[in-house]
Amino acid sequence: MVEELINEILMAAGTLMIVVGAIADLTGSIGLLRFPNFFVRLHAATVGTIWGAFVPLIGAALFAAGYVELGTHRWFVTGGAAVTALLILLLGPVGSHALARASYRSKAAIPYPLIHDALKEKFREGGKE
């Protein structure tokens, strides 16, 4: 009885997290399509990575832990989803940051609605001294 209640709670939490992740994923993709330049699109891509991939992976891990019909192999799904969620939590921001740094320094993407560039002044001061 208690085990059935625990499985029910796990499946409900997993379903909620998967639905939240799907909605965040759609939001991130619309933002990536509609924003004007690369440095603004990074914001939408981060929404789509953390809220759209990390949250539903944790949700899928909880869902598989409570879904008894999968048999013993459901712990395999739980472990794999948890490891993938941890990898995405570590690797996604690192990749976005490396790409942003490279594209700013190599001027591959021009930020055109730009009023004040503080980073350029910092580079110039650092280069003088």
Binding site: I18, G52, P56, L70, S103
Partner: peptide, 29 residues
Amino acid sequence: IPDSVLAIDSMSYDLAAFITILSILFHSP
């Protein structure tokens, strides 16, 4: 070029989540 790479990046991370959900729905862990 960074726009395309960023889109592939986000798409693949979301694809990893979608693959996990599909493997639960297909009953094949």
